[in-house]
Amino acid sequence: MFYDHVGVMHGHRKQILKGNKAENWPLFAHRPHQSPSAQDMLDAMEITGDSRSQFHVLAVDDSLIDRKLIERLLKTSSYQVTTVDSGSKALKFLGFQEDEQSNPDTPFGSPNNHQEVEVNLIITDYCMPGMTGYDLLKKVKESSSLRNIPVVIMSSENVPSRITRCLEEGAEEFFLKPVRLSDLNRLKPHMMKTKIKNQKQEEDQEDLKISEIQSDEQQQQPVQPPSPQPQPESQPQPPPPPPALLLQHNNNKRKAMEEGLSPDRTRPRYNGIPTMV
């Protein structure tokens, strides 16, 4: 159960239970090896009739005062909230593993490598000792299983280059601290967008299966079929050309799907080049 998982979080179990929300948590809070389909989520939302209480936000801040504040702000806006005091605890809560990227042989769906509690949005402070909010953002966006979770950065300093860097790395919003109730109105569209995108991925799953099979065939037949056109690029290609990673993961549907179907998450990066807002 996710209680055990949360119990590891050094007392944050208490915070969650204090809100008396444990029994109202998403119906799919316990998800051993499978993610809920978007349809499951939509169904769950319809049953309760309160869509916002189905959104779970993970708030990360090293300052206790600011954790209290953001927790209250989010709860007042009817979100479910979990707070942690560091980026590393946030990653632990999300079920992130360091070697997820470097070891492609790790079978996806192993219990350690999985988010047991659905998190619909991460809101994190920028300036924290150890792992900064920017480091956390990068780790989330580089992780195939977490990159679809929208990330919002908060900072007390209005540094344009910092804001640009975070947005380029894939942050959805940048809030100046102290965060106000009115800022939180900007969260919901990002969570809705992700839900819709997840649903679209479910629908595309069938198409992808076909393309995986075809890419297998392509791999087994390195000789190009005879074609009247000399350039293979100009040929109409029914399946999208699979990236190299995808070929290694044909037994790994969800991972392959996220590698192949999230081009909009991969924003251009201009590391090292100063940019203006």
């Binding site: 300052s63 005062i65 600011d66 300036c127 007390s156 601290k177 102290p178």
Partner: peptide
């Protein structure tokens, strides 16, 4: 920096 953060938060 911390003091500035907490004082502005309250």
């Amino acid at each position: 920096h911390q003091f500035k953060g907490s004082s502005s938060s309250i």
